[in-house]
Design a protein around this nucleic acid. Structure first.
Lengths: 156, 156
DNA sequence: AATATTGGTTCTATTATGGAACTATGTCAA
DNA sequence: TTGACATAGTTCCATAATAGAACCAATATT
């Protein structure tokens, strides 16, 4: 199976990965959430080739994750900003951070810590049940066929 | 920057992606969480080449996400099982599911829905603050330098 | 002895990526 | 009015990664 066929499965993980699942995209989005909007700044902070960066940004715009907006004319220049669809990827980023903090910190503790503006405390994000608020682990959850699944095969 | 240098940044997202950030790994882990343990079953359900599958499983074992255990001898056969480190990736998968359900369902609704065994209700996972339980969005959280960051550069 | 089962490895053609050089549109200073 | 600077790309080529098919290995079954 080639990568461009990956989103054809009735699986939300595969479909999400078809948008953000390549090697650079989630790092690009990390920069977006840190306020980066311009091509040169992405390039400099990410250390990726302009070639790939250009391609990836364009695709993210096509996929509705970023939008390209002029910030000046003469010469016309654009910047890349998160759409609502893009902003909604924040929990994905945070859960990646959480795992990296716990398992990949090289014994030095997390490189970045987070203060929750709401309650003022340092927070470690937890994925919880929307209905009862309890944390969700693999064993706590029972997957069932949903409306998006007909006579189709696998999914998650 | 090449991919094998990516984990050298003081950034938990980059470090996590250095383990699970290639095109197939998170789909392999999806299967693990659905109970798949054997090479042939991974191959059949994922539709990826044996070549890549073999390579990826091996790397996941090296990285401590899966462990390889014999389930019979004569002939000796192994299966791949999630370690604690691997199981802890569940929130990453669930947050990918959540986004795909919301933005990539092609108007048909989610392919899979989840019942929380704890409270018995259908649940949509929410990332919340460990301290106060409120949902966390990008604007609700203030990143600060953590102990893992010294004179280093960027991070998240 | 031939076939099946499971779990791989090897090989080659195709595709993706990194990195350097080049292009385009303007500004500004000498 | 020429030359340097700034921003945002695009083009080109060598290298790396991937898909897919064929092959290999240990043992069981017929």
């Amino acid at each position: 199976m080639r990568w461009d066929e990956i989103d054809q499965q009735p699986c939300s993980i595969a479909r999400t990965l078809s948008v953000v699942g390549d090697r650079w995209t989630l790092l690009i989005l990390r920069e977006c959430f840190m306020g980066v909007r311009r091509f040169e700044v992405f390039e400099e902070r990410l250390g990726m080739s302009r070639h790939r960066l250009s391609d990836r940004l364009q695709r993210l715009v096509e996929d509705g994750v970023l939008r390209k907006e002029p910030y000046q004319d003469k010469p016309l220049r654009h910047e890349y900003r998160l759409t609502d669809k893009g902003k909604d990827l924040y929990p994905v980023l945070l859960s990646l951070v959480r795992w990296g903090d716990r398992w990949m910190d090289q014994g030095k503790g997390p490189p970045v810590i987070y203060r929750h503006r709401g309650c003022g405390k340092l927070t470690t994000p937890v994925l919880t049940c929307s209905e009862c608020g309890e944390p969700l682990g693999a064993r706590d959850v029972m997957p069932l066929a949903g409306p998006g699944l007909r006579a189709d095969k696998q999914g998650a």
